[in-house]
Amino acid sequence: MIPEDLLYAKSHEWVMVEGDIATVGITQFAQEQLGDLTFIELPEVGDAFEAGNEMGSVESVKAASEIYAPVTGEVIEVNEELEDAPEKVNEEPYGDGWLLKFKIKGEPEGLLDAEGYADAINAEAD
């Protein structure tokens, strides 16, 4: 199930845009690929990124993966609960497992809709 109301980056982050605020997480597909997450490294509030920049990483027992900023902007909030409970990302990647919020600069670019992301996953699986 890929939520219809979100936008997606090819690097498996989702984005929910409300005005100039974007909430960001990783997708169901990404968390399944990684397995049980053990640690999530997030930037600090105030850090600024260009879309496509590396901004943190997620780790499971046997894998690690970088997370990339899907939009350009400044971090205004991070989900601090993940520090002690990374499993929230496994359990609810689109809910309590959100990662951080951005104040967006400019319009988000190059993001996919649910259908486009589904195609991207299928292409990757082949």
Binding site: T38, F39, S60, V61, A63, A64, E66
Partner: peptide
């Protein structure tokens, strides 16, 4: 433990 820091997973990172 914490092996995701290591080179057999992260290689050059």
């Amino acid at each position: 433990t914490l092996q995701a820091r290591e080179q057999h997973i992260r290689r050059q990172k």
